[in-house]
Design a protein around this nucleic acid. Structure first.
Length: 590
RNA sequence: CGGAGCGUAGCUCAGCUUGGUAGAGCACCAGCUUUGGGAGCUGGCCGUCGCAGGUUCAAAUCCUGUCGCUCCGACCA
């Protein structure tokens, strides 16, 4: 390809709209252009890199035994109602209307379609297992599109769905996908780490996310360097001490009401004249769960983890109560709330409490009377708790639940997610089969996603320097950039470049020839910005010595005789292709 | 959905406070010079100042509304 033939609109300066480096480089290198917030056009180079990622995904999915299909993006809302997700996923569903005013849903994912397909086409255990995948455009009405391709309204996802006869068989399908994902990201030149994950609105029993460590990531991962434990903080647990230590010595006196005028927060009570440490307070939250109030109790210095709460409640349809709703529920306003049995009286509100409160004594909590709190509260004796659960968010430094070493927390980008779904969808949508003994049973499912466009940007986020992108060979838009410093038809430099170009194309190398009439500095800067793994400089001076330069974007320069240049470059490219993709990934642990 | 900031040339931005009819750098076009890390000189092109309404003799500038973009938040009572 000649540079002037394609379109590579590089930018010297980063557009103001781009905050993070990978987003800036996507735009500066001329890979994508924004049409609207969270909606992007792929330009020729961006599309080539995207196709490379897709090809790796296809090869590994095929190798793992999945078969490719293509499912509709335009879906009838009825199937979403059938699965129950028309409601639970309503905030991400784009809805469109045809000329007959009929509603359609733009697919954010395809469990419904594929499960209905399996329901229609799979009848016998003899047809199982099956694993279907597709690579297609997905639509999500994101609350807040961000960071270019990272969180977009329209994006490309690889989604796969496995159907098995039993839980054990489904476990094997899950394992195969897990391994395929590990290979896919490694081949893309990414260092990724599988971490335990929450299953969210998708549902299911077991789940891992594949994370790329990055300060700009939207997820937090808790991990242990001692034993290798790693989990999304939405899911992570620790061995934090279960109860605050006793401060009053022996047995605690009965709860005592005391005035706390103006106190609104945990922090207010930690200050004089009260001086009550947050760890000795009980935080009382009121949530509206499917239109009914629920109390959630935590230690004052702990944070509620809504993902854990959702998992325990079995629904994502909940929100914090408004101050008016709080008053209607407890007869007091936020700041004076509590769950001491005597102050709840006959109020029929379920109380959930975090495990860390179990057995705590001499605690302070609101009295359900504005401007008053209770001290000397003994959790086991005084509180009315209906459900105990792990509801808190772990914090860095807490001991690992497995080995006791301190947990660390790092931000990361989620590029892949695997779920063991069980029979949630197959039961609702009728994906059943007849087993060996003639019994009809629901298929046991798994689903597996890779954000293909996000993966591409994650590669840039991880592989760049001050000059631009440093593409791993496996996903580079072109493997080699030929940079002749003269392009006059009759110049020896141009003739040598053309010969080298022809020889490399003949050798099956993906090469772009910078045939622009630009000064050397401009060509070098652009090639570095776009990030081609290899650049061959052909200049008058070195050519006069019969030599050209081969420069690696990742670092390294060698001079070779012009006659050997094609063979040498082809060899270097093949070596790089055979490697893991350009960066050396350490494996296994976060 | 709440909060904040920003919309002026393809890109980065100035001008707005104090109203007087639009600028710089880069990019682009032409010419000359230059030619190994984003060249120099000369000339040129490019704008309904996001949109709509209002105030005014006069609006990029002041007011109102609206749309868009970006960031923060949308657990911590």
């Amino acid at each position: 390809m000649r540079w002037t033939h394609t379109l590579i609109p590089t930018l010297r300066e980063a557009p103001a709209e781009a905050e993070i480096v990978s987003h800036q480089l996507l735009l500066r290198a001329g890979l994508v252009r924004k049409l609207a917030g969270g909606v992007y056009s792929f330009l020729p180079l961006g599309l080539r890199a995207l196709h490379k990622v897709e090809r790796i995904v296809r090869e590994e999915m095929d190798r793992a035994g999945a078969v490719e299909v293509l499912l509709p993006a335009l879906q009838p809302p009825e199937i979403w109602q059938q699965s129950g997700r028309y409601e639970t996923a309503r905030h991400v569903l784009y809805k469109v209307y045809d000329s007959a005013r009929r509603e359609w849903v733009l697919s954010p994912t395809a469990e419904e379609v594929i499960t209905l397909l399996a329901a229609a086409e799979i009848q016998s255990y003899r047809q199982l297992p099956k694993n279907f995948y597709q690579i297609s455009v997905k639509f999500r009405d994101e609350i807040r599109p961000r960071f270019g391709l990272m969180r977009a309204r329209e994006f490309i996802m690889k989604d796969a769905y496995s159907f098995d006869v039993s839980d054990e068989a489904a476990q094997e399908s899950y394992r195969r996908m897990y391994e395929a994902y590990t290979r896919i990201f490694a081949r893309c030149g990414l260092r990724t780490f599988p971490v335990e994950a929450d299953t969210g609105v998708i549902g299911g029993s077991l789940s891992h996310e594949f994370m790329v460590p990055a300060e700009t990531g939207e997820n937090e991962v808790a991990y242990c360097e001692g034993c290798g434990y790693a989990a999304n903080v939405e899911k992570a647990v620790s061995a934090a001490p279960a109860a605050a230590p006793e401060t009053s010595g022996g047995s605690t006196p009965a709860p005592e009401k005391f005035p706390t005028p103006g106190v609104q927060t945990i922090e207010d009570l930690t200050r004089p004249p009260y001086g009550i440490p947050a760890a000795r307070q009980i935080k009382t939250l009121v949530y509206i769960v499917e239109s009914r109030p629920v109390l959630v109790l935590l230690r004052g210095d702990d944070q509620l983890n809504e993902a854990k709460l959702a998992a325990r409640l079995g629904t994502t349809v909940f929100r914090p109560a408004t101050p008016e709703e709080v008053y209607a529920t407890l007869g007091a306003h936020p700041g004076s709330l509590g769950a001491v049995a005597t102050t709840l009286a006959d109020r029929a509100v379920p109380v959930w409490a975090d495990e860390r409160l179990r057995g705590a004594t001499d605690m302070t909590t609101g009295a359900n009377e504005d401007g008053y709190h209770l001290r000397h509260v003994n959790v086991a004796r005084d509180l009315r708790v209906d459900q105990w659960a792990d509801l808190r968010t772990v914090r860095a430094g807490e001991p690992c639940a497995r080995c006791g070493q301190p947990l660390r927390i790092r931000r990361a980008i989620e590029v892949g997610h695997v779920f063991k779904l069980g029979t949630k969808y197959s039961e609702k949508l009728g994906a059943t089969f007849i087993d060996e003994s003639g019994v009809r049973r629901p298929c046991v499912m798994g689903c597996y996603g890779i954000g293909v466009t996000r993966t591409l940007q994650a590669v840039i986020e991880q592989c760049h320097d001050a000059d631009g992108i440093i593409w791993p060979v496996s996903v580079a838009p072109y493997e080699v950039c030929l940079t002749p410093l003269q392009v006059a038809e009759d110049s020896p430099v141009w003739r040598a470049a053309q010969q080298l170009y022809a020889a490399l194309v003949e050798a099956g190398i993906e090469v772009i020839l910078d045939d622009r009439e630009e000064r050397p500095g401009v060509k070098f800067k652009d090639a570095d910005l776009v990030g081609f793994p290899f650049r061959v400089n052909i200049g008058e001076k070195s050519l006069a010595r019969g030599e050209v330069e081969i420069k690696r974007r990742a670092g390294g320069l060698e001079t070779v005789p012009v006659g050997q240049a094609a063979d040498r470059v082809a060899m270097l490219v093949r070596e790089a292709r055979a490697g893991r993709g350009g960066t050396t990934g350490d494996s296994g642990r976060f």
